[in-house]
Amino acid sequence: MRSKLFLGATAAFAVLAAGSVILPDWAMFLCAMALAKGLVCLGIVGMMRGGVVSFGQGLYYCIGAYTATLVANSFGVSDIFLLTLLSALACLLVGMAFGPLLSSYRGIFFAMLSLALSMVLYGSLSKMSVIGGTDGLNIAAPTFLGWAPEGRPLQTALYIYVVAIVVIAGTLMRIYFDSEQGLITLATRDNELRVEYLGASVRNIMTYNYVFGAVLGGIGGTIAALALGHVDPEFAFWTTSGEFVFVAILAGYLSVPAVFVAAIILELVRSFSNLYFPNTWQLALGIFLLVVIVLLPNGLGSLVGRRKGNAA
């Protein structure tokens, strides 16, 4: 079964990477941003499987983006691999600090507490003029193990990089979702009492999922910052976090590829709505989500990702 997964991942990489040849610049940028945001949403989906939804993943998206920018600007580090690693590490540490606290909460309390943390970061960054305040900071184009492309090659390299990260993260999360711990997460969503009385710690499970979400959020933020060449406190604003939740709901928790498909759909709907209905694009987006919720209550993933083992 794992060979099927790896084969699927290789095929996904090939198909997505082919986009670097056939897509115009604007579409490649749009896809790179959508995939980067999809990574953040994948973290939310991991938490959704355990029965909670974070409304504050902008926190890690922002920490990842600012870590990469500050390291690049302060220490002259431009290597994309190193910047991604350091951002992921920063988010891992912050996630490990907040995870045990948040793991005690459920439902709206978990959602609001996670949102509060991201808004504290937003408020702090907005007031810190030393790191740009509300204007944010610019970040130079990244290098790839010493290679410093410019123009279209830079965009292509960045796109291939995000595709590779997405495929690796998606494969790892699929392995996790299908694992014994993944099954415990699903059971936790269903019946915490049973899980505790079988001898597993529900708090630990919630913490793991939160920390994984933090790391994925940080990686997504780093890639978004490098693609945009700029970061600002809006990365941690509640509307940014709301967008991630929107994608997670659109995708559902059954399928990993659905998360990235949903992220791309959101970017497309937003871009085209913005183009053709500049003042009412949020309305178009809202109607779209409403239709998906009514027709596919378990998200786009339910079209392909029926959970294994079900009798149905």
Partner: peptide, 23 residues
């Protein structure tokens, strides 16, 4: 079966794994 797999995964000798397939 999945309920039973859940119990087996938690009670397993090496504890639940992030890599070992539940099924």
């Amino acid at each position: 079966e999945e309920n039973m797999l859940l119990a087996g995964a938690i009670h397993g000798a090496s504890g639940p794994s992030f890599l070992r397939r539940a099924h």
